[in-house]
Amino acid sequence: MTKVTDEHILGLISKGGADLEHGYRLMMECYQQRLYWHIRRIVVAHEDAEDVLQDSLVNIYRGLSRFRGQSSLYTWMFRIATNESLRFLRDRHGENTPFEQVREKLIGTLWQETGPDSEEILVRFQQALLHLPNRQRVVFTLRYYEEMPYEEMARVLDSTVENMKTNYHYASKKIKELMTK
């Protein structure tokens, strides 16, 4: 079976009409699960991740005809999903709510979402991630879970490679400290 490539998907999309629909379906098959887990790691609750994923998928469709390939398809989609996730958190918790308060709410959600059978170290690890500021948390998850190159991360977050490296370094250090306690 031929592996579906981004070039194949973009080729279909550029033709428009029924081919665009086909390209969109293929894109969902290839990337939906990765997008979901990326969103889930940011917003924590499954129901919230479900909503943000739907919004992201619709926005991706809306933007397909305008996508010009300045970045990879994967980077572009992750940028949309990341923006939607961060916007969700801002809307849900309020722009001016102190970080500590938001953190405690998300930790509470984490414990609700993970049952007694969940592996304790995995829950503690996610809890440690929630101690990071939102953007730093996104930097860490993109690098750690997606193994995204720093150049691509800089495009996702509209930043610089140096900023991404610095944030990842400090995030890793903070998580190690929290997990070692």
Partner: peptide
């Protein structure tokens, strides 16, 4: 890369359908 989360069975198929309906 393990996570302590799970998803309901059939979630991703249902999610694709919902996205296509929204589109």
């Amino acid at each position: 890369k393990r996570l302590p989360y799970s998803v309901p069975e059939g979630f991703f198929e249902a999610s694709s359908r919902r996205a296509l309906e929204a589109v």
